[in-house]
């Protein structure tokens, strides 16, 4: 169970996260929505310890992880994929996933084995298979398609065997068809494991169809939370979020 209690963070004058509280049920699939700059990525950064919060507390199960380093929090079972793909360009898919597995197990400190012959190579095959990367298993990361790079980013997170998986816009930069393919894959992954999954997504269709619970973030605050149905009918959300969306459409 991931719990946030009154988490706040500001950058200079901008309050990026304002008094956010959340309780994510174990094994649930959740979505965070909100316009650009709402503070969604910042929230992920706070949970994973990449940046430190100014106030509030964060717990995994009963453990207070507030103020722990990104490194420690990763080892406590929180993994993430990034909005802007964050991979290792010169590594093949196989090498990337193997390296991630070794990183998690402190295996990268080993000087006496050979990386290429490491048993973790076998395990990486499984992760590639469940993320659908088996066909590009030996391709170098920077030569992969955009979609496959996003998948690889997720595969790296999966190698952490996380309890909580945070996906920052897994469908960013994709066409509609590709988006659905991606999100179905994510949903499959979630079903096969008992992870708690949180994803950030702009496509409302996807969000309402896939998520069990939705958080609407607006200017750093939680504007609304609840089941897809309750969010759809929430007047605040319709005013602020959909209103904001419309304005944006007009201006572009």
């Amino acid at each position: 169970m991931l719990i946030l209690k009154n988490v706040t963070k500001s950058f200079g004058g901008i309050i990026a996260t304002n008094d956010v509280s959340m309780k994510l049920k174990p094994g649930s699939i959740n979505a965070i929505i909100g316009p650009n700059g709402a503070g969604k990525t910042t929230l992920f950064n706070l949970i994973t310890g990449k940046i430190k919060n100014d106030a509030g507390q964060i717990f995994i199960e009963d453990k207070n992880i507030t103020g722990l380093s990104e490194l420690q929090i990763t080892h406590l079972g929180v993994a993430r994929a990034f909005q802007i793909t964050n991979i290792f360009p010169s590594f093949s898919v196989k090498e990337s996933i193997t390296a991630a597995i070794l990183a998690k197990n402190h295996g990268l400190n080993n000087i006496w084995k050979r990386f290429k012959d490491h048993p973790a190579q076998e395990e990486s095959k499984n992760i590639a298979a469940i993320t659908g990367l088996d066909e590009v298993f030996n391709i170098q990361s920077d030569e992969l398609s955009h979609g496959d790079q996003k998948l690889l980013d997720i595969a790296l997170a999966l190698a952490m065997k996380p309890q909580v998986l945070l996906l920052d816009e897994p469908t960013a930069g994709m066409g509609s068809e590709e988006r659905w393919k991606m999100i179905n894959r994510v949903k499959d992954l979630w079903k096969k494991t008992n992870m708690t999954l949180v994803f950030i997504e702009h496509d409302m269709d996807i969000v309402f169809n896939v998520a069990q619970k939705i958080y609407v973030l607006h200017q750093g605050e939680i504007l609304a939370e609840g089941s897809p149905k309750s969010i759809k009918n929430n007047q605040n959300v319709i005013d602020a979020y959909l209103g904001g969306g419309q304005k944006k459409n007009e201006s572009t």
Binding site: F91, A99, A103, L108, F115
Partner: peptide, 10 residues
């Protein structure tokens, strides 16, 4: 060529 070496490349 060890896992350590690949850590460097990472």
């Amino acid at each position: 060529e060890s896992p350590f070496g690949y850590g460097l490349r990472m």
